[in-house]
Amino acid sequence: MRMHFSLWLKWALCALALAIIALIFLFPYYWLFISAFKTREKIFTMPPQFVPDPWVLSNFTDVFQMTHLAGAFLNSTIIALGHVALTLFLCSLGGYAFAKFRRAPGREALFAFVLGAMMIPMAVTMIPLFVMLARLRLVDTYWAMILPGAANAFGLFWVRQYIESNVHDDLLAAARVDGCTEFGLYWRIVLPVAQPALAALGILTLIGSWNNLMWAFIVLRTERMYTMPLLIYLLQGERRVPYGMVMAGGLLATLPLIIAFLFFQRAFIRGITAGALKA
């Protein structure tokens, strides 16, 4: 009986410690949530309010009426989906070619060339990219957010690895005999098999695109083109920062990925860890 009790106590203490850690990490989300339902004055009371009194919805109605929040949400969605789709297309088609056309002259050299580029930080290419997009008159368009970074060297590497070990040559050969076209092989055999690798890469790309503030700040200029992070950031630049609206908008920018994460937790973690497997 004693034994039981001490075991139970140990379990309870562990659970308590872990719960406290989890609460500390979740706390900023709680603060975001309650601040979105406070009046502006109550955000800055001393002592701080842990529960909004009164609860108000005005931050949400204000942020929708006084800013282009709905438009920004749409822009963010279009950009994120476009960027993910393009990245997946380029990396899977290229990755398939690099994995399965082993006799193609120049294959090794081209691949080494791409791998070398994995070392280049975005910071080095930022200025020329901006200048180029400006000359192509793509600044302040979706393309300025979708195109750069879509030919992701790491993504190509990642998909190639997966296809190499999971798509069998016999299967491709059999399909060729049956008269399947080369593009058909990619579309009907390679893509379905490579789905887990593409899901991980897609999630990694989605997170980066949805949360991107710096590049949006550089290439998006007019309010109707703003993404969620940019709109929220610029609200903060007003003379009297409308913190309630900032929090309401911030909550709406944060929720989609969290909801997706709760449904596809494992795929998300695989996506984030994907980068490590190359090490």
């Binding site: 872990l18 850690i21 989890a22 609460l23 990490f25 979740l26 900023p28 989300y29 603060w31 975001l32 601040s35 997170i207 949805w210 949360n211 503030l213 969620m228 992070p229 929220i232 950031y233 903060q236 913190y243 900032v246 929090m247 911030g250 909550l251 920018a253 944060t254 990925l257 969290i258 994460f261 709760l262 937790q265 998300f268 973690i269 984030i272």
Partner: peptide, 19 residues
């Protein structure tokens, strides 16, 4: 624990920095 410590990885930094 895993969920709560991992969530910051998928949150827009701008929002959390303001919080």
């Amino acid at each position: 624990l895993r969920t709560s410590v991992f969530l910051p990885c998928i949150t827009p930094m701008v929002v959390i920095a303001i919080v």
